[in-house]
Design a protein around this nucleic acid. Sequence first.
DNA 1: AATTGTAAGCGCTTACAATT
DNA 2: AATTGTAAGCGCTTACAATT
Lengths: 349, 349
Amino acid sequence: MGVSLKDVAQRAGVSIKTVSNVVNNYPHVTPQMRAKVQRAIDELGYRPNLTARHLRKGRTGIIAFAVPELGNPYFAELAGAVIDAAAQHDYTVLVDHTAGLRERELLVCQEFRSHVIDGLILSPIHLENDDLLARQETSPLVLLGEREYEAPYDQIAIDNVAAARSAVRHLLDLGRRRIAFLGSRTGRERQPAHLRLRGWREELTAAGVAPDENLVVATDGYGRGDGAAAMAELLGRGARPDAVFAYNDLIALGAMRTLAERGLRVPEDIAVVGFDDIEESRYGAIGLTTVQPDKQAIARHAVDRLVARLAGGTVTEPRRIRPGYRLAVRESTGGAHTVAPPRGGADAD
Amino acid sequence: MGVSLKDVAQRAGVSIKTVSNVVNNYPHVTPQMRAKVQRAIDELGYRPNLTARHLRKGRTGIIAFAVPELGNPYFAELAGAVIDAAAQHDYTVLVDHTAGLRERELLVCQEFRSHVIDGLILSPIHLENDDLLARQETSPLVLLGEREYEAPYDQIAIDNVAAARSAVRHLLDLGRRRIAFLGSRTGRERQPAHLRLRGWREELTAAGVAPDENLVVATDGYGRGDGAAAMAELLGRGARPDAVFAYNDLIALGAMRTLAERGLRVPEDIAVVGFDDIEESRYGAIGLTTVQPDKQAIARHAVDRLVARLAGGTVTEPRRIRPGYRLAVRESTGGAHTVAPPRGGADAD
DNA sequence: AATTGTAAGCGCTTACAATT
DNA sequence: AATTGTAAGCGCTTACAATT
């Protein structure tokens, strides 16, 4: 069906090597020869078969980006950034989601698609350290997200402890003392949320406030519904928090929904802080104060590391890269009711 | 680096054809032979090189799904559904976004990655009918979204006119008469929003209400910021709408943000209806009434059509498939303040 | 007739040879 | 020395041949 190098060579009356030279911009080709071959290429509408090229070179030009859930805007926004960053290196991105299931996370980082992708950027939830150490696959892997591992892979994540502390610090500065944490994981030692939870503990302790475990609520997942349920449970316990720090924005938004239903005012009765700065947090009736990780930087670093590994050359030590973050203060903690500037995006359906 | 068929054949002391037979479950293989080969496969940890297989078969097993913007939750949710539907047919999905730019839409449906993907599901915004007719690529293409084309490709979309009419009907039933439309496109005849806009016109006319073009506001894009700006513009015109029908949920949510800032009550002063039913619409302080397209059905049909085309066989006429939809009535039009049930998702970061 | 082997070829890149 | 050609091979599938 397709036009091959051979067809072009025949048409131009040269060997396929010469056509290949032209296609790959090999320097030692006379202008006349180049023009002649180019004419044949144009006439036949030739385009290189990437599959064949990849078979030959052992590379596909595709990297995978696996996140727990595309329905979480944080990951969707991050995926967009990764796609753009990869495009700058001529890589194509295959986005996958693991539904937060350990077995799908394993599948993704083990054999799965090993011959289709050159490398993988993975944001795990349930993957254990041993899973990583047992990994057979030799293709490059870059890890994203809160969990930290003792494994020989590049890891990109903001300083979650420090970021969480800054959020709690902000609430303490407002005079709040009964600060709840929403979104720990039920019954797990080294749980996904442990760094943010640690930040919560550390900052409270540093301020001379004893962390009250009765103010920590575990959730099944990390969506709006989980946040709404967690807030309901917290209130049901008879706990009387004056502030809530949520594992992420979705949980915070769900919690605010419950507060609205119960007639509790934000921030007067209960101040709320989230984590992620998804766009939605800026547009609710009450803007959400939240930790704002530099998503562009995360995506860029992840792709850069992966591409560097793929390029080979000097083998460098695995790195831990800490992109920046800042606390975006909005109405949910008494910040100004700022009108978000209209952004000229083009996200229709 | 990898273990090939040849290595396995050598180890097992058979020909590569026999190994291939085992790998592909060719029926005429004696159990003893199968066991012998399988042992060699296990010992060497052999896994087929998909690139080679694809080169040979002319297929890659990858389909692309291109949307305007992954940051729009509607598309992110749809992408998740497409990934799952494709997995059922053993296809892998490469998600791409066009940023709503016509040239990127063209690139995606023309030569781009032609040898990497077997087929494409595209949700266009700016693509014109002539662009489709001029398409050279012979790989299957399925179109999604509001725009309808006179081109020989399968198209999957809900009945946008009828859905828009049901939304306007609902507002009329509430006694509203000055119903604005937010999200038309500036200066375009056959614009993306034309079907929903037509539904707005038809239903008003049918109810004996003259459509007031002063109540139609164009936007640059389709995000929250655009909705906020459009609402501000509408109010700035001195228009006194008692209801708003927005092109999509993001625009509706942005509009509600502006209304909150102006001290206008929803739904008492102005009722609001959106389109898409993104999860966020259920969790704001004021639940958003919206048209709820059956996303699972859309994804399933799109993948089914593409897979059917890829399988070849009987060449069928291009089809127009209309998945279902319904109107989800919530507080923004006076619906009950229902507590959304906690949903056990696992979308953390 | 049932089972296994041989050899070509998918479209490309690259080491090396050959030509000017 | 600069430019172009020959031939092998990446790992697989498949038509056909060969064997039992």
